[in-house]
Design a protein around this nucleic acid. Sequence first.
DNA 1: TCGATCCTAATGGTTTAACCATTATAATTA
DNA 2: TAATTATAATGGTTAAACCATTAGGATCGA
Lengths: 238, 238
Amino acid sequence: MFRAAKQNRIFQDVVDQVQEIILSGKLKAGEMLPPERELKDMMQVSRGTLREALRVLEHKGLIEIKLGVGGGAVVKDITFDQVNESLALLIRYQKISLRHLAEFREGVEGRIASLAAERAKPDDIVKLNDLLIEAKKYSEKGNDFQNEFIEVDKKVHLTLAEITENPVYVSLHHTVHDNIDRYYENFLNMKERELKENYQDLCEIVKAVENKDSDEARDLARKHILRFNHYMVRREVN
Amino acid sequence: MFRAAKQNRIFQDVVDQVQEIILSGKLKAGEMLPPERELKDMMQVSRGTLREALRVLEHKGLIEIKLGVGGGAVVKDITFDQVNESLALLIRYQKISLRHLAEFREGVEGRIASLAAERAKPDDIVKLNDLLIEAKKYSEKGNDFQNEFIEVDKKVHLTLAEITENPVYVSLHHTVHDNIDRYYENFLNMKERELKENYQDLCEIVKAVENKDSDEARDLARKHILRFNHYMVRREVN
DNA sequence: TCGATCCTAATGGTTTAACCATTATAATTA
DNA sequence: TAATTATAATGGTTAAACCATTAGGATCGA
């Protein structure tokens, strides 16, 4: 209900004030805070204290600080970067294993596919089929184009997430991929047969979405991710 | 693939070094960093620079700083707090609406229930049934015990999340609840009839888990959350 | 005139030294 | 023995100076 009121720290008050100004829209993304030397006078704190506050705001992803003339603190358009970073820390601290993350992803992608099946518009179906054509190309070219295939695979999943029109899913897609990629760069080494299996998966998922068969889409997407997870887990380093 | 190498900043190097020491296990939760005045000498930086680094580490959730004699920077056991905070920011910045978050929760709780159905041990079933008895009590006492009922409801969901043995789900439970609660404290105002409906939901979910019927558990959990979401969305303030 | 080079000033990054505020512990006193 | 007070360790804050980076203007050469 309540959180600790460690409020005797001046820099925290500075953080809160600036954050409030940004979140309330008085300063929009791209606009700048006054230079440190002016701001410290306005807020009647020392430059050191102000800078501690700026460090926190920077780390929160609310501002970005540039050097030189015309530099200074620019208000940032907030992204999921901080969520990703925190998750990455949890993984490194071994509060989460990649197996857990992979299992989570399995559920999420299933849900995304099923929502996409309910919500896909004709345009979306076209886009998905275009991606399939690309995927087919790479899957037939064999191992040398493995990375390209994986990129297209990612794009299919991203497109499905976008079709849900729920930004939580879009962001989660990035979060999960960022964190899986970070530790498993090129973890995949699929044989040509496996590339083709994956291509088939994608085709079936898209077909289910096209048919608005949400249960089928969910089950197929989960199976598809499960296959990926197997490649991954068989290489897990723990 | 690569991230910007803004590495001319000394405090960043301090952050990286200390973080590495903590994550590598050389300093464990509960242990302390040297006092600022010693650490600054060891790392050959000024106290101001060191303090900027400590601010960042504190905000990352890696250390906690206490005042007074015997105070200083204590290594923290890392939690999901930072993830929650970042998500809360995204919500306030209106990158995510509560409707989106609620929809996401619906999917997650469904998945949790279905995994729980596959993994519940006899002990778990006992625990769930105990909670149901408590829930029944409050649901019969009517509106005055609405908050108590909601607490038990939360506990049921938390227990289901724990049964999955996947910490991602446990943490997500907290994240979602923290963020929903923050903006909808007491958002619920259920009539007695609604309390009883919710109690029935819980009973059915637990029964499905007991029967290891994962599809049924999933569908029931989703319907249950959907009901909650209706109470919430009908009060949404946007 | 154009382009290259250099200079200037704005702005963040860092240092130093001092002092303030909080608090656990030891010393003192009733 | 218990309450009170003093001490010192430790983080929090301030001030003033200097360093490093950089955009843009000034200068100079062709």
